[in-house]
């Protein structure tokens, strides 16, 4: 946990305890994708701007590209792989399909994770959803449909 060399990190990743040794400068995103092999979380800008890397840390949405992996030792991380399956979609995933809220799909895991956190904040209208989702970019421009999908699950 300290000093030179690798840092040991214990995470509860999608409900499973994972112990892994990381470079001190590794991001949580690189830990999840490259070391633990869960590639559902995407690397877009790698600079905190696009939100494709959004995951939940102890139920709060964060940008895993700006998270130092070593600093997240002991935390509980949820990625898109822990959200739903093809047979049992999360209600927000099902709503994304109904509302055609994606085209290429690259930003979608981050949109879903971010949207789940926004739903927990009980947004009051579409405009509040738009503002709350400003940390997730969609280069295909599916924004109106993403907002509609979240609004439907929020009961708006």
């Amino acid at each position: 946990m300290s000093g030179d060399g690798l840092v040991t990190v214990s995470l509860i990743l999608n409900g499973q305890l994972r112990d892994v040794a990381v470079e001190p400068c590794a991001s949580l995103l690189d830990l999840i994708r490259d070391q633990l092999g869960l590639t559902g979380t995407k690397k877009g800008c790698d600079m905190g701007a696009c939100g494709a890397c959004t995951v939940l840390s102890d139920n709060r949405r964060i940008k895993s590209c700006l998270a130092l992996a070593a600093s997240y030792d002991g935390s509980s991380i949820t990625t898109i792989e822990g959200i739903g399956t093809a047979d049992q979609l999360h209600p927000l995933q099902a709503a994304f399909i109904r509302h055609d809220a994606l085209q290429c799909g690259y930003c979608t895991p981050g949109q879903i994770l971010s949207g789940i956190a926004v739903l927990a904040e009980s947004p009051k209208d579409r405009s509040a959803i738009r503002e709350a989702m400003s940390g997730n970019l969609c280069r295909c421009g599916a924004y109106p449909n993403i907002v509609s999908a979240i609004a439907e699950v929020a009961g708006l």
Binding site: S57, R61, I62
Partner: peptide
């Protein structure tokens, strides 16, 4: 300031 994710960090 920033975005929801960044404000959480």
């Amino acid at each position: 300031s920033a975005s929801g994710q960044v404000r959480n960090m």
